[in-house]
Amino acid sequence: MTDAEIRALILELIGEIAPEADLASARDQDDLREAFDLDSMDFANFVVALHDRLGVNIPEVHYNRLFTLERAIDYLRDAVAQ
């Protein structure tokens, strides 16, 4: 997957979890939880959705690597490639 595809997927999944989110305002360095008001249940559902769509089983200790778009893209690019 390209970085653009991963970014689009992340925003698509967040859009499903938080339909009212202004996805166009997403900046790569923003904390996704703050930017889109995601609580711990939302974030858990986000990880579930990533697992479902990409087949990537993200351990809990790596959750902090998904907190920003920039870091999430880096992490998922590597995870998908493995």
Binding site: S40, A44, V47, H51, P59, E60
Partner: peptide
């Protein structure tokens, strides 16, 4: 919780809540 979740797929993990 860490031990409970570590071997589980995301959908089966639980939150501290």
């Amino acid at each position: 919780i860490e031990r409970f979740n570590v071997d589980k797929p995301p959908v089966e993990r639980i939150l501290p809540a």
